[in-house]
C-alpha cells in the first residue's frame, strides 16, 4: 500500500505530464482493476478494452483532472462506468453466472466438506466456493470492501448505487459466507466422523 502523500505527489507528477508516473500508476493498480473487472463482467476483452480506454483518456485529459488523494478510487469508479456503459447492450447480464453456479454446486458436496475440514487453505477454498455462489453485485461490493479496502460511501459511488444498497450487498453477502466459516458446523463435522 502507498501513503496518501506519495499518492498525491504521484498523481500531481502525472498531471504535469510525467510519463513515468503515468506508467507507475498503471503498474500499481492494473492488476486490481483487472481483478475487479472480472466481478462486473466475464468478458475479458471488454475488461481489457475498458482499461485501455480508461488509461488513454486519463493521459489525454490529464491537464483537466483535479487533485485527488485517492487515485485508486478514481480509477475504480471510472472503470465501473466504462464497463457498464459498454455493457448496456448486453441483455443477458453476465450469462455465464448460471453455468458457474451449476458448476460450483457440483463441487459443493457435503462429503467433501466433511473429509477436508482442516487448515487455513481449506477455509479459503470453502470461502471461495461460497463466494462464487453470490450475485455479481454482492461479489463486487465485497471485493471493494475487503480486498480493496474502500469505505461503504466510496463503494456506493463506485458502483453507482446508494449508500443503503451498498451496505445491503455487503451484509447479505457476509451472511451467506458466514456459513462457510462457521465454527459450530465444523465441530459437528468432527463429531460425525468420530461417531
Amino acid at each position: 500500500m502507498i501513503t496518501k502523500t506519495q499518492n498525491s505527489s504521484l498523481w500531481n507528477a502525472f498531471r504535469g505530464g510525467d510519463r513515468d508516473s503515468f506508467q507507475r500508476i498503471y503498474q500499481l493498480y492494473v492488476k486490481e482493476l483487472l481483478s475487479y473487472g472480472h466481478k462486473i463482467t466475464s468478458d475479458v476483452q471488454l475488461i481489457e478494452d475498458s482499461i485501455h480506454d480508461l488509461f488513454i483518456e486519463l493521459w489525454q485529459s490529464r491537464t483537466n483532472l483535479s487533485e485527488t488523494d485517492s487515485i485508486k478510487f478514481y480509477l475504480f469508479r471510472s472503470l465501473r462506468n466504462k464497463i457498464s456503459h459498454r455493457h448496456r447492450r448486453d441483455v443477458l447480464y453476465r450469462a455465464s453466472d448460471v453455468a458457474h453456479f451449476i458448476e460450483s454446486l457440483d463441487e459443493f458436496s457435503f462429503e467433501k466438506q466433511l473429509i477436508e475440514h482442516e487448515g487455513q487453505e481449506q477455509l479459503l477454498r470453502q470461502l471461495k466456493k461460497s463466494f462464487q455462489l453470490l450475485s455479481p453485485r454482492q461479489q463486487q461490493a465485497l471485493d471493494l470492501r475487503f480486498a480493496q479496502h474502500f469505505s461503504n460511501e466510496e463503494i456506493a459511488q463506485i458502483m453507482g448505487i446508494n449508500y443503503q444498497s451498498a451496505c445491503k450487498f455487503i451484509y447479505s453477502g457476509l451472511k451467506v459466507l458466514r456459513e462457510a466459516v462457521r465454527i459450530f458446523c465444523w465441530g459437528l463435522a468432527y463429531l460425525t466422523i468420530t461417531c
Binding site: 503498474q27 492494473v30 492488476k31 483487472l34 481483478s35 472480472h38 466481478k39 481489457e48 477455509l123 479459503l124 470461502l127 471461495k128 463466494f131 461479489q139 465485497l142 471485493d143 470492501r145 475487503f146 480486498a147 457476509l174 459466507l177 458466514r178 466459516v181
Partner: peptide
Amino acid sequence: RLVVGLQEVPRVAVSDEQV
C-alpha cells in the same frame, strides 16, 4: 475468518503477461 479470507478470495489471478 471472514475478513481475513475476503482479503484474498475475491482476487482473480492476473498474469504479468496480460499486464
